[in-house]
Design a protein around this nucleic acid. Structure first.
Lengths: 227, 227
DNA sequence: ACTCGGAGTTAGGATTGCCTAAACGTGGGG
DNA sequence: CCCCACGTTTAGGCAATCCTAACTCCGAGT
């Protein structure tokens, strides 16, 4: 007998769990209860409970004391939420004056409320974009996604010229700072200098030089190796 | 310093109750448990429970066995939801290809998820409209609203020429039919004939004549008395 | 004025989803 | 090889919100 006859509709919480688990288990890795708990800011015990319910719905594979993986259905549901989230972000930035560093929270609420119809209308007026304002790829309605290759800015050697590809999510003030420096997907920069041992990085953006901490360099990702 | 120091944030359910009660108690009328239950498709017992909780939060005045009224705070909260709902409808129709007869359901979900910031951005790009696609007035952010005078089409005498002002909410197929006839806010029509005793109404819309049932005539409201 | 019948409320139960505290499993270090 | 620490799960609670069933109130009609 195979997985899903019919899922009862996911709750808002369930959707958040699946998204979190998707993010935590790239390439078939297995996610642990406490990782999920940490990401969602819940207690591990709560996660155990919800994992059980989602497993019963055929969305997760759970090996007690070992870890959790998405089933095909679970992955589909997670990618559906990712598509919604990223299209909503793109829409808000394109049409309603949001900036890429402030749009996350709004999308986080809306993604649970929009209909498929609305999502696809937004996609249409946007021209079916491939990436969101952070540079993250937008899954197709069928659940296909491909992550463009990129490396953290913190691994780019001094002297290289690279294009910013993505800015990963993080604390709002951190994102605000990155935005204020002018780092955003599509921008070309040069790495002027770097201190050893995860020290600060000196970069040139639009003719100006900035020194940024290594942690920021790990959040900003660039076109992998160029020139 | 006025009424409310702090309400704990309303839940989605609470917001729906306040909206329903607002709609049921025009001009200080009092709403009954069963009216609310009927409107929200819940059991009267459930309404009793929630009414108690909302009263404790200072949003309702409840006289047991008698009825319910909104407090100033409750009214403010209800009008806030109404503003959201109607602006969302207006936005979806103006920018995302929705039609006035299909937009309600989407707005019903989104109104609980959007931030004030997003609502005001939508209002701004719409040019701060006074009415939504159904012709219903949009409350201001401060909670002011004024209902433009209108009378049901079913009370317009034969021979009169009137402008459609509002189409009240109703079952989707009913709305769809009204839309298909071309009745919508702003349109001018003529009442050609009417049968007595709440019988059908014959109207001319954009050069074509239609016969509509009296129930539909009660849902469509017109500029009050013209010519 | 009394009495029913219907409207309204209370009681008790289910579900979801969160928590803390206690019990339990697993694997690495002694 | 055993045992303990840490991570995981279970147990037991709580709050919100719904339900059905049983009880209570009110007022309309005789």
């Amino acid at each position: 007998m195979h997985a899903a006859l019919q899922h009862e509709p996911l709750t808002r919480s369930g959707e958040d769990y699946l998204k979190a688990i998707y993010r935590l288990s790239p390439a078939g890795r297995t996610a642990s209860t406490s990782e999920i708990a940490h990401r969602l800011e819940l207690s591990p015990a709560s996660v155990s409970g919800m994992v059980k319910r989602l497993s019963e719905q055929g969305l997760l594979e759970h090996v007690p004391y070992k870890g959790v993986q998405l089933t095909a259905d679970g992955r589909r549901a997670a990618l559906r939420m990712l598509r919604r989230h990223r299209l909503i972000e793109a829409y808000l930035v394109a049409f309603l004056g949001y900036t890429w560093d402030t749009v996350h929270e709004e999308a986080e609420r809306l993604e649970h409320a929009v209909s498929d119809k609305l999502v696809e209308r937004m996609a249409a007026v946007l021209g079916n974009p491939a990436v969101d304002p952070h540079g993250d790829p937008i899954p197709t309605p069928e659940g296909d996604i491909h992550e463009p290759a990129s490396i953290p800015l913190s691994e780019v050697p001094a002297g290289a010229r690279v294009e910013i590809r993505r800015v990963e999510e993080g604390q709002p003030e951190r994102l605000r700072y990155i935005a204020s420096v002018g780092l955003r997907p599509g921008v070309h920069i040069r790495v002027l200098d770097r201190q050893p041992f995860q020290g600060p990085i000196t970069i040139e953006v639009a003719g100006r030089t900035h020194v940024i901490g290594n942690e920021l360099g790990q959040v900003v990702r660039c076109a992998s190796e160029q020139e």
